[in-house]
Design a protein around this nucleic acid. Sequence first.
DNA 1: CCATTATTTTGTTAATTTGCAAATTAACGA
DNA 2: TCGTTAATTTGCAAATTAACAAAATAATGG
Lengths: 104, 104
Amino acid sequence: MSEIYKALSDPTRRQILELLRDGELTAGDLSTHVPVSKPTLSGHLNVLKNAGLVDVTRDGTRMIYRLNVSVLEDALMSLMRTFRIGQPDQAPTPTAAILKGSKL
Amino acid sequence: MSEIYKALSDPTRRQILELLRDGELTAGDLSTHVPVSKPTLSGHLNVLKNAGLVDVTRDGTRMIYRLNVSVLEDALMSLMRTFRIGQPDQAPTPTAAILKGSKL
DNA sequence: CCATTATTTTGTTAATTTGCAAATTAACGA
DNA sequence: TCGTTAATTTGCAAATTAACAAAATAATGG
């Protein structure tokens, strides 16, 4: 599970994910948009693949990469639950409710 | 902004954030729960502080650390918007709506 | 099977990160 | 100002990461 955060921690990899956001791209397509050498790009794609954030299929000589949003979604939801983000506040205890209504 | 992802990419730092989730703790408190030396812990706390994920105040000889949830919240919300997570699906085009209602 | 295209693997280097022990700083109370 | 407690900074080693060029692999078309 920790591999996802590692994968997200590099700006080049986040750029790749954003490029894939609107649809699948080949390694070569990505190469024209991401300012690193092809071997370096290939390494980043491998990190993303191992984290489950992208899926790959082959089409002839090219490799087609696509985003796997659900993995990202699960990771974010998990973080949100852990830190209680975007969730209803804890229901106040009766005592807290009384104090809140009192003059002091 | 990229510092937040970097900060989150280390498991020890995520553990620290979780420990702070339920309330503030001193560096010493954290030290008893996190299995690294105090200098190492201090380094991690500094990374979290620079990312804005924690705030610090001094209380006599101790340093009190507390979670800054809003920074984490903003980062996650930004990611969700970027990848259109937890948002209503794209409004269907008129044509798509017609096709959806048809038998084929 | 050979040439071409697309991509990955290998080998290497430089930079960054993580870890610890030892030394240092900061605040407090006697 | 000492001595004590709490935490950080410094200095250094080991591990990891990101980058590239060159070589290797895989698939296709002739």
